[in-house]
């Protein structure tokens, strides 16, 4: 009996969906617009995160040692800094490498190259380039270098002061963009939920007489609710599937532009989509099924008291 009822409810769901095709198309279109907007905002947030990471990766602290400092003394400092848990990498650049780098950098500037040739000795000292995992940890590295007297006597200069402004600004911008991005996503999701709930309410309202008739013929609440809930689930699945295809296409289409925007980074929207496929589409599907079923249930309750 229960199995027979379930089969009939499923059959009625598909039948109603097909026989009310225009209302079905309108509801599915609203679902697609909603899901696609949310997916697009997720993409934009991911690209923004990536852009911020890219800029952050360009930030480091260079510690310039006095020319008299021996490589052994510098290696000792390097080992100590590397031991810090928040330090990602410490690169040693010898004075000759630094000079070579400088020459390459000003390859098209004969005046500077001539000036360098005029010098008898290499004026540059050895350098340690320090990168940390988080930008806020650069200050800690600098504090340690300044607070330790045996290091301070070896160091000529460090360029953190220049970077600290950029780092602080970046942290602020990064946090704000992330907050605004997710805020907009949440706001849009709420508007979308309201649109979907009302679309379903209108759809149910158009069938209110039908619901009353079913009840008068002796249908139980479950037998009336079932096909409407089935229809809502069909809307949600079709809407999600089309959004998936649409998002995939848009991701494919936009990747060359993203690469052009960010430069040579290890990030594409397609890769992001692949690695978060279940999180993005799984949650969207679950959310939309939940919203559709709940709003159908609530909208129906009003007309079931016959």
């Amino acid at each position: 009996m229960i199995f027979l009822s379930l089969v009939r409810i499923l059959k009625f769901s598909f039948q109603n969906f097909a026989r009310n095709i225009w209302l079905s198309i309108v509801t599915i279109t609203i679902i697609i617009l909603t899901l696609f907007s949310v997916t697009s905002l997720i993409f934009v947030n991911a690209v923004m995160d990536q852009a911020i990471k890219l800029v952050e990766s360009k930030v480091d602290v260079s510690v310039y040692f006095k020319t008299v400092t021996t490589p052994e003394q510098i290696f000792a400092v390097q080992t100590n800094i590397e031991a810090l848990s928040y330090v990602e990498d410490v690169k040693y650049v010898s004075k000759s490498d630094a000079l070579e780098k400088l020459r390459q950098q000003y390859d098209d500037s004969p005046l500077i190259l001539e000036s360098l040739k005029e010098l008898d000795n290499n004026p540059l000292g050895d350098t340690l380039v320090v990168s940390t995992y988080e930008t806020e940890d650069y200050q800690k590295v600098i504090d340690i270098l300044n607070a330790t007297p045996q290091y301070a006597v070896l160091i000529e200069d460090q360029n953190f002061d220049d970077n600290s402004y950029v780092i602080n600004k970046l942290q602020g911008i990064s946090a704000q963009i992330s907050m605004i991005g997710w805020g907009i996503t949440l706001f849009f999701a709420l508007i979308s939920i309201m649109v979907i709930v009302n679309t379903i309410r209108i759809a149910i309202y158009t069938h209110r007489d039908e619901i009353g008739i079913m009840k008068l013929v002796g249908a139980s609440n479950w037998f009336v609710r079932g096909p409407f809930i089935g229809e809502a689930i069909i809307y949600a699945f079709i809407g999600s599937a089309i959004t998936f295809v649409l998002s995939y296409t848009v991701a494919n289409f936009s990747d060359p532009y993203i690469v052009g925007l960010l430069g040579p980074v290890d990030f594409t929207v397609i890769d992001y989509l692949h690695s978060n496929i279940f999180l993005i589409f799984g949650l969207e599907l679950a959310g939309i099924v939940g919203i559709s079923v709940l709003s159908t249930w609530l909208a129906l309750s009003r007309y079931l008291r016959v």
Partner: peptide, 23 residues
Amino acid sequence: FKLLPRKTLFENVAFALQVAGET
């Protein structure tokens, strides 16, 4: 009348039996 508009005449009559669990 109170017929279900999205069902054929056959289905309208059948509906009363379906809610009663007829095979």
